[in-house]
Design a binder for these strands. Structure first.
Lengths: 296, 296
DNA sequence: CAAATAGTGTCTTTGAGACATTATGCG
DNA sequence: CGCATAATGTCTCAAAGACACTATTTG
């Protein structure tokens, strides 16, 4: 460490005299897409309840985007990583600690916040609803769980000799009681001889703050993709659950029905059998499984 | 847009009077892991040349980490996205435009730069070596292409009733002529009933700046993963190539030999047949293929 | 018994892995 | 002809998809 630079300074000397430049820096926020899966009410005493995928949003009380709904998040402090900031916010917002958290993407459109230059390092969190519904969902705070649905409206692939492009139109709906938010988005993938570009564009936006419709869309896509080759879904499950419940959660995430037999063959091994059973359900009892934290 | 906040301001009025707070902000850099694949020299007139995977590094001329090698990159300006910053730097560094670029991860350990708070939004770039070796590789700049190898040294999985952990030890080697850089890294995955955590730790570091050994490792892992289910490898290939060359590139990325027949069945469809053949190779000529920019 | 879910069996198709075989230009 | 690579064929095994069938509890 005794190497000197062109000014004859050692590294230590250099760092002691170092003054950060006076250029503009961005604020960096950690924003979170927090998913959970809940049971709906039974509409029939012997039918199983349906599941719904939910997402936590917070109502903005001030400008900009006043009265719209935003992802929970906050600015990163100089003594923490973006992930630590996310976990800190998550604890404040939901009271839940030690959660599945995954960095999604860093959004950096310079004008994504009309106030100033703010980048969003976004995270996806998955939590077991039995641990959380106490805290958020009460009306004291302005945080609410929204039922979420992301549908592909149209998909167009066009190819010519110079390249190809794929346009996907999405419709995002979020609802909590009377509150209905929605957005239309277009994902464009352009490929040509020299690279690839993916772009998300918000076509229409009803009630979501900033570019959060984009972030939510990216999160759902990531969740849908990962569900097929990982066991992250277990993070949405309570300690004990039936394989049918697990399948229901897969189905609401993928937004399509799955066949029972092959679902059990493929994903049944993610969980661990117990000797417990459900009871008094109006039909044959089901074996309960437990989350199994293996590497597959 | 006529909604007023608690101070009676409309959004427009609010934005006009808005003053950014006086808190500390991080600098944000866009750093790039730029891969390319090149032919080695033939050691036999009729043998095919081997391929090597290479990575662009730049020698640091000043403190900190003076005389060590760093990923190309630079600070993001307030009028551009991190991706635009990466593309700008890439053009400056390699003279190549319109390249495959993919956001990798945002590294935000507060002490990753000893000078000040700097986050790194890192990107992986893949470029066709026939387009680039003019610019970098000359000794005028201090940018050089390094042969890269990332080997898994050891892998330990341990499980108990509360969770599981997987420790992978990597050894990273980078070489360019006489210059040999290396690093040992440990990846730790911890899973328990309430979440998962992945951590990369630099155990030993010879000649790489900052946490760049980590970034490089993450990039290689991402590349290895994506190679199996996408066609990104095409971005490393020249306009025309043989299937054996394509296989060689897969092999240097995955660092293992592949069987010819099933390689062709699985990945041959990524490219488009031409009616051209190689010639005067000392053995049977091979059909040339072209990159095909389809969505698979 | 009927409703409703739980759980398994099996046939077919698809694709991966392993390995063998044939083809061809060049010196 | 022999070296070295090109290109394809085929057998086996594993997994995925589709669908049918049996099992069990409660009102």
């Amino acid at each position: 460490m005794e190497i000197k630079d062109k000014n004859g300074l050692t590294e230590k000397e250099f760092l002691e005299q170092y003054q950060p430049g006076d250029y503009v820096r961005p604020s960096v926020a950690a924003d979170m897409v927090i998913f959970t899966a809940v049971n709906c009410e039974k509409d029939n005493y012997r039918r199983l309840p349906e599941k719904k995928l939910r997402l936590l949003l917070i109502r903005r009380g001030g400008h900009p985007y006043i009265n719209t709904w935003a992802l929970p998040g906050g600015f990163v402090n100089p003594d923490e990583t973006t992930e630590q900031a996310a976990r800190r916010e998550l604890l404040e917002e939901t009271g839940v600690d030690h959660i599945y958290l995954e960095q999604l993407y860093t959004f950096s459109q310079p004008d994504r916040d009309p106030r100033m230059w703010v980048m969003s390092c976004s995270y996806m969190a998955l939590i077991d609803s039995t641990k959380v519904n106490v805290n958020a969902g009460d009306d004291a705070t302005d945080a609410k769980w929204f039922d979420i649905s992301l549908k592909t409206i149209a998909e167009t692939i066009s190819e010519n000799e110079n390249g190809a492009s794929a346009v996907t139109d999405y419709h995002l709906t979020l609802s909590h009681g009377e509150i209905n938010l929605s957005a239309s988005l277009r994902k464009t993938l352009i490929r040509n001889g020299t690279g690839i570009q993916t772009e998300y564009e918000i076509i229409e936006n009803n009630g979501l703050a900033f570019d959060h419709a984009k972030i939510i869309t990216v999160a759902v896509e990531r969740l849908r993709g990962k569900v097929n080759y990982t066991d992250i879904v277990l993070n949405l499950m309570p300690e004990y659950f039936t394989l049918t419940e697990l399948q229901q959660v897969y189905e609401i995430i993928l937004d399509k029905p799955l066949l029972k037999a092959q679902f059990r063959r493929k994903y049944g091994i993610l969980a661990e059998e117990t000797d417990q059973y459900t009871s008094s359900a109006g039909h044959r009892p089901s074996k309960l499984y437990r989350r199994k934290w293996k590497f597959h």
